[in-house]
């Protein structure tokens, strides 16, 4: 049904919709985030739910302490290597459809603590991330923006076809392997099926410093 006809019908008091629209509308307006704070960003996440920014306006105020009841994981803060297996296990315990917001520089790439020996350089090495918000910490407005971006993403999902979301495609995995604590680092140090490092060509201008010893 084309859009002008729909509008014309609506003016006559006839409401038409598709199953896909109804389904996405319901999902996008009742996201239940996991009550899960890691570091500094968690305080801004709490501030977002409080009276001034009031995330409840977007249907996402019901923070659930249990991953079984949540469908949005806001990775708010630095993921350390000691914490990473727990984060992935929590993600695996969440039911589909589930989404991840990577909040703040640390959760994206390690941020200011990138050079730390115990800091994971981005949660997207182990689990797929839907929305990234930069900032250290991102302001509450940024988190609201991320939430709205996620809602838009959910709204545009097709229930059928090749580009249907993961939870409707039985061939794609919804759980990911949990890394083990090793003697020097996490093992494996990334999930190669999820994490594809961007191809960056590192070179010093004009000089060939290969870095080989």
């Amino acid at each position: 049904m084309d859009e002008p006809l729909k509008i014309a019908l609506r003016k006559q008091g006839i409401f038409t919709t598709t199953l896909q629209e109804l389904y996405n509308w319901g999902r996008k307006n009742s996201l239940w985030p996991l009550n899960f704070g890691l570091a500094c960003c968690a305080i801004e996440m709490i501030a977002t739910t409080m009276a001034r920014y009031d995330m409840a306006r977007f249907g996402a105020e019901v923070f659930r302490p249990s991953p079984r009841q949540a469908d949005l994981m806001i990775v708010a803060g630095t993921v350390t290597k000691k914490m990473a297996p727990q984060v992935i296990r929590l993600y695996n315990q969440m039911p589909e459809p589930k989404y991840v917001i990577s909040m703040g520089a640390c959760a994206i790439s390690g941020g200011p603590f990138k050079q730390g020996y115990n800091v994971l350089k981005g949660i997207d090495r182990y689990i797929p991330v839907d929305i990234y918000i930069p900032g250290c910490p991102p302001r509450p407005e940024a988190l609201i923006d991320a939430l709205m971006a996620l809602q838009k993403k959910i709204d545009e999902q097709h229930l059928t076809g090749a580009d249907r979301p993961r939870h409707l495609n039985l061939d794609t995995p919804s759980e990911f392997p949990v890394p083990q604590f090793g003697a020097h680092d996490l093992e494996p140090s990334q999930n190669p099926e999820i994490w594809h490092p961007p191809l960056v060509h590192i070179s010093l201008a004009g000089k060939d410093e290969s870095g080989n010893n």
Partner: peptide, 27 residues
């Protein structure tokens, strides 16, 4: 004298020591 684990797959703004480590990793 601690040597940190080699996780230099992706360094968007690498410089100095980090650049060297990132190159070593790439090679």
């Amino acid at each position: 004298d601690y040597v940190e684990p080699n996780d230099y797959e992706y360094e968007p703004t690498a410089h100095d020591e980090v650049l060297q480590k990132a190159k070593q990793h790439q090679n």
